[in-house]
Structures are given as C-alpha cells and as structure tokens.
C-alpha cells in the first residue's frame, strides 16, 4: 500500500514531528520573549533570539478556512480530502487534515479538537475533528 509523502526531518522541523510521534501537538516558543510561532523557524522574528523550546497545545481551535481536495488524487491519501486552516486557542495557526466530518458539516468558525492520527505504516500526525458537544 502506498503511504503519504513524509516530511524531511531537518534541524528546524524534525523535532516537531518527533513530538507528534509521541502523540503530542506542540507549538514552538521563543525562550527569550516567549512568543509562540508556527510553522517553526530557527530565529524569533520579534527579538531575534535563537533559543527556543515548545509547549503542548491544549488541542482546541476554530476553523479559519478550509478546502476539500478532489483532484489530482495522489496515492497514499484518501479523497475527498478535507484540509483545514485552524486557529489554535494559543494563537498560532496550523494547516491540518479535518476528519470525522462531511463537506456539509464544515463551516468557517466551527470549534475543533485535535487528535493524533496513525497511518498504517505507523507514521503519526496531528489532525482535527469537530469538537464534541459535551466539550463545546
């Protein structure tokens, strides 16, 4: 079975995927001014510090925009493929997959919650689903 295209594991991004492999959605934080940033970068664009750590996201967010992909269909992915741009409660944004919902369920502004998806080959990545009513 073909599997999804894997990210390169570079010094500036590999650590983020290692956290996903440990079932965590994390956000890079400047160690100097404590501003959060995503996608990760080696330098803080506010204070130019090269020191950083990360925090675990609470997993709650809302949908800033989305698309549902139909064509072309790339082996290793399932279509229609819903992709969301999510405003995390912590203030950063992330591009992710939307799961457990149909096209007509998706509306900009809807509350979402993160979970870690595991592919058949063991690769893990954070995805989002509609927030459960009890938690909304």
């Amino acid at each position: 079975m073909p599997s999804r295209i894997k990210p390169p594991m570079g010094e500036d991004n590999g650590w983020w995927w290692e956290q996903a492999a440990r079932d965590k959605l994390v956000i890079q934080r400047c160690a100097s001014c404590e501003v959060l940033r995503h996608p990760p970068r080696p330098m803080c664009d506010g204070c130019r510090s090269l020191e950083w750590d990360f925090v675990e996201a609470c997993g709650r967010g809302s949908l800033a925009s989305f698309t549902v992909l139909h064509h072309p269909q790339v082996p290793g992915y399932e279509y229609p493929l819903a992709i969301g741009l999510v405003d995390l409660e912590e203030g950063t944004r992330i591009v992710t997959q939307l799961v457990d919902c149909e096209r007509d369920d998706i509306t900009i502004g809807m509350p979402l919650e993160a979970l870690i998806h595991r592919d058949d080959d063991g690769f893990k990545l954070p995805v989002f689903r509609p927030a459960r009513e009890s938690e909304a």
């Binding site: 295209i5 991004n13 925009s65």
Partner: peptide, 24 residues
C-alpha cells in the same frame, strides 16, 4: 521544509493553496 508542512497532509497543488484563501 516549507512545502512539507502542506504536502505531508496532501496539500500539494497550487489549486489547493489558493482554495484556502479563496474559501475565506
């Protein structure tokens, strides 16, 4: 690395990137 934040999730065409802005 830049492109990988999108391609890993299956977002790998110009249409997909533009759709995200157009939708909103």
């Amino acid at each position: 690395i830049h492109w990988s934040w999108y391609i890993t999730y299956g977002m790998m065409t110009p249409a997909s990137w533009v759709a995200m802005i157009a939708q909103r």
